[in-house]
């Protein structure tokens, strides 16, 4: 096990897959000569050259479509969209071309592309550089969505996404690239489907993904130490498809659920998880499930307002205490 950073894990997955298969390429803004805004492609340009490590013009719709077209012929492009806010410009190609081509061609063509992008609020980046958009991607037929919460997942999910024949959107987080964690020394493929019980508990399930897994873990610690509440933390690293069986199994055990997401509430991960709970195990519930989420405002620049917009572990603790009648 190596203790490496999230960005190093992503870089390693690129490097291994590019060394293995000459049709694996990567592209994006500043990923080559500059090494990538988050260093996720550091050193690859020098190793694999400009034909396979493509510094693109600032044309998100254009180069995303180019990647999709190349994938029709068996090329495996890894596209970095520098910020998920810019992905709006590329969504036509992701949704209308990549996600639909297999279906509308009756299975003749497929678009095995990987789209990686950093979302989330960092530090006072304002309304157009702070969005969380996973909820937009997770409702698209034909598109897989995964979101790594640690370096091991960042490495293993990217490895699997490159190999998978379906288009995969990988939702990363601006604040997590320097997070350290254990990654297996040998080659490792993380499942693209399912969920992971990160901490076992008996009284309430805290569902998180990506950064919110860490709020849940911290909240579980506080709930255990200060309030004697045993919280289970479930990491929903796959947002499309969501793990119905995993959600059901945990809630059937704890009978209570809190879903924590950095995204705004409407039509989000929380809405979807709670709908699944209703469909799968409504009669197991001892309390109404709740969501912890951002305020529905364009991200404010002001530091105090920004902090007030985004939830954290304290909001998860509060939601659980309220559920238990302790707040």
């Amino acid at each position: 096990m190596a203790n490496i950073m999230y960005w190093e894990a992503i870089q390693r997955a690129h490097d291994e897959e590019m060394a293995r298969d000459p049709l694996v390429i990567c592209m994006g803004e500043d990923i080559g000569v500059a090494g990538g805004t988050y260093k996720a492609t550091k050193g690859l340009y020098e190793k694999y050259g400009p034909l396979r490590v493509m510094d693109t013009p600032i044309s998100e719709g254009g180069f995303t479509g180019l990647a999709v077209g190349a994938s029709f012929l068996g090329v495996r492009p890894i596209v970095e969209i520098m910020s998920v806010n810019f992905a709006w410009l590329a969504m036509d190609q992701m949704f209308n071309s990549a996600a639909k081509v297999r279906y509308m061609s009756g299975g003749q063509l497929t678009a095995p592309c990987v789209f990686r992008s950093a979302g989330g609020a960092a530090h006072q980046l304002g309304a157009q550089h702070s969005a969380r958009m996973e909820k937009v991607f997770m409702g698209i037929a034909g598109l897989r969505v995964v979101t790594p919460s640690n370096p091991k997942q960042a490495y293993g999910l990217l490895k699997s996404a490159i190999r998978c024949d379906d288009p995969v959107f990988i939702n990363e987080h601006e604040l997590m690239y320097n997070m350290k964690g254990e990654v297996p020394d040998g080659e490792y493929f993380h499942p693209l489907e399912g969920s992971e019980v990160t901490r076992a508990g008996t009284d309430v399930t805290l569902f998180g993904y990506n950064i919110s897994v860490h709020w849940c873990l911290k909240a579980a610690e506080i709930l255990d130490k200060q309030y004697g509440i045993s919280a289970e933390v479930v990491d929903l690293y796959s947002l499309a498809p969501l793990d119905r069986a995993g959600i059901k199994a945990s809630v059937s055990k704890t009978h209570r659920a809190v879903v924590a997401e950095e995204d705004e509430a409407p039509v989000g991960v929380g809405s979807e998880v709670i709908a699944i709970i209703n469909e799968e195990c409504f009669f197991e519930l001892d309390a109404a499930p709740v969501r912890v989420h951002s305020a529905l405002v364009p991200q404010p620049y002001n530091h105090t307002l920004e902090k007030a917009t985004i939830p954290d572990h304290e909001d998860v603790v509060k939601a659980v205490l309220k559920m238990f009648g302790k707040a």
């Binding site: 049709l23 034909l51 254009g62 995303t64 180019l66 029709f72 012929l73 036509d92 190609q93």
Partner: peptide, 29 residues
């Protein structure tokens, strides 16, 4: 696909980058 007719697409202008991508794949191969 067998005849290398890579499709009809219904978003006006959508095939432009797809065509460039197909050309990119040809270039790589």
């Amino acid at each position: 696909a067998g005849k290398r007719f890579m499709g009809g697409y219904a978003l006006v202008g959508g095939p432009f980058p797809l065509a460039a991508g197909i050309a990119k794949a040809i270039q790589l191969k």
